[in-house]
Design a protein around this nucleic acid. Structure first.
Lengths: 354, 354
DNA sequence: GTTAGCACTCCAGCCATGAGAGTGCTAACT
DNA sequence: AGTTAGCACTCTCATGGCTGGAGTGCTAAC
């Protein structure tokens, strides 16, 4: 209680910061509690282990470190990582070697935009040895560009919907009567007149009008309803498509050798709503965002950290790239990688949309 | 050595079979070696534990059972499971409850064929509590139906390729000059004349002809090359798209609580070639195929079993559905489910392609 | 061919033990 | 006042011996 007054409330003095940093960097590689001895040995601190112990106990009291048990070394708390990340984040930039490697990988794939985000996830997973996440840059709300009807067999047609923003979706649709391609073209032309360049909402109202129109061709109405449904799906599916790569990397981390925790993480990732809400949160923030352990809303994610950044243009298309790894993660490298990749993706999107 | 002559070479007598079956069924639920005592208690064998012990040691000598150590119960070997599966496989049919449930789930999704195979994987994972696998029914080799060029921005166009078999693929393509939609339509019309209803091979030769044609429009040639590339990808990507669901289920099995083994399995699954070769093997077999433990080529898969079946029509489109689980797996239910789902998928494909 | 009985084997859990790592405190030093 | 050496103390982890129990394999009797 007497010590209460000593509790540091303001920013840490430089030495404490240095020690915190050393502890984190040591722990990140060893995955074992760090003792005062190892610290003075491996990092040139210029003080004795006793002094380090004093500092460590202050840091613990301030909430930046914790003790698995008495007489064990310290491990960083989420707050410790947070402080660390904030102190280093602004001046992180990725090593030239890594930049070069990533650039090279992106050089391979041309303009097949569908593939960018997969590549981003794979690249991130590769260089960080954690899991890479990426979503395609889906437009906010999209307009129909063009509808296409192609006979696939005598009983089915393929309905292709193309968006102004470049997306495309295809479904099969049954035909009762023996429509031939010319008739399908007529229907498609009609629908394009009615629906092209309209948003999902506008299409919905046009389609209800058509549905109630007694002279409308029933087949055309059916197709129109289908188009409306597909447009609705486009709108809803902002982030449905999270691509992840390298979850296996995370599996081999020692803290996840008992698979139960990781199982929960996987399960949480499959929940689309969760990632959707994350992106919503990110959309406002400019730079790389780091969510450490318990800073994640979900209990399942309390043992992992996320390093995320958006890419694309706020008005038009927005996607997310990021890293998922243990809280004991090489943050500088992860942040550097995510920052660099999101920048690269920005350029690519820029190039794409003029 | 004296016993050598007693070694059973022919089929097992009924009682031995019954005991083998009981051991397997007990082991499948408990995941612990099965002793002679428990066996006579829980299964009405009508003989004493000593007799069971005799039979068990015969079964072990024949290679159907094994011993983790002396004085432990028996566990089935891969050969034991194999015998068991073969003895029950022909007369397995799924319980009406399960049939109903699966039918119901398939009732929800309409004609969006793209989604069938995902649904199949999810359904299988759900009812078997193991991992569900499914590939889309990709056509053997496909013909181009139709090409579409739509301006996406002043500098990019969206190139949509539609296959006769109903597939669709989209990529962005850069425009240097300020093409407008009318010009794009012209190019598309030209390409459709040249390339429609042709296979990937035929398109390739047409495109080389165009490339060498001095009067051909450079932009049209570029697009044609792109189309050719996309067609090649369609052809190559027979099985690239394996959808798996419920790998988490397998993670929670006791034999995989040390995650290393499972990690290997996941890694093997990511290798497309492996699954491709599996499908090739399957294509010839009519019914459900079961691959137990070491029967899998890959060492990584020696601790898991696969229950697989094809669906679709041999000539046209072929896909695979299946279960991946521990060798200690509820085979009857898995086989029943896979058989039923593949039948259902057959019907759906039938309906689709007339 | 089947069964009861029994010796034997091996594992899993338990406890005690000791080494090692690391702390926290106190008293001396600068 | 801050730093350091010294030391007692705590806690974990690996080791080894011990015991109970489960299950087998064998033998002799039915």
């Amino acid at each position: 209680m007497a010590r209460r007054t000593e509790r540091p409330t303001g920013p840490l003095d430089p030495r404490s910061q240095q020690i915190l940093r050393a502890i984190i960097e040591e722990y990140v590689v060893t995955a074992e509690p760090v003792g005062s001895q190892t610290l003075v040995e491996r990092y040139g601190l210029g003080v004795s282990s006793a002094t380090v112990r004093n500092v460590m106990s202050e840091l613990e009291e301030a909430g930046y470190l914790s003790h698995p048990h008495t007489s064990a070394g310290r491990i960083p708390t989420d707050a410790g990582y947070r402080l660390y990340v904030e102190s280093i984040a602004p001046r992180i930039s990725l090593a030239p070697v890594d930049r070069l490697m990533i650039r090279h990988q992106f050089g391979q794939v041309e303009f097949a935009s569908e593939q960018w985000f997969r590549l981003a996830a794979a690249t991130i997973a590769g260089t960080t040895h954690a899991a890479g996440l990426a979503t395609p840059a889906k437009p906010r709300s999209c307009k129909l560009r063009h509808v296409d009807l192609v006979a696939a067999s005598s009983r089915t047609a393929s309905l292709v919907v193309v968006l102004a923003e470049g997306g495309v979706k295809q479904e099969l649709i049954p035909l009762e009567a023996g429509y031939d391609q010319a008739e399908l073209d007529d229907v498609a032309r009609l629908l394009n007149q009615e629906l092209a360049d309209k948003s999902a909402r506008q299409i919905a109202s046009r389609v209800t009008a058509m549905t109630n129109d007694p002279v409308a061709l029933p087949f055309a109405v059916r197709v129109a309803q289908r188009v409306e449904k597909m447009m609705r799906e486009f709108d809803a599916a902002t982030i449905e498509d999270v691509f992840s790569d390298g979850l296996l990397n995370v599996m081999s981390e020692p803290e996840f050798s008992q698979s139960e925790k990781l199982r929960r993480v996987f399960a949480a990732l499959q929940n689309r709503d969760y990632l959707g809400s994350l992106v919503a949160r990110l959309a406002t923030a400019g730079d790389v965002q780091v969510l450490i352990g318990a800073e994640n809303d979900r209990a399942e994610m309390h043992d992992v950290s996320l390093v995320l950044a958006t890419y694309g243009q706020p008005g038009r298309a927005l996607g997310v790239v990021g890293v998922l790894g243990p809280t004991r993660m090489a943050y500088p490298h992860a942040i550097g990688t995510v920052r660099f990749v999101s920048g690269l993706m920005n350029e690519l999107v820029e190039q794409m949309y003029r």
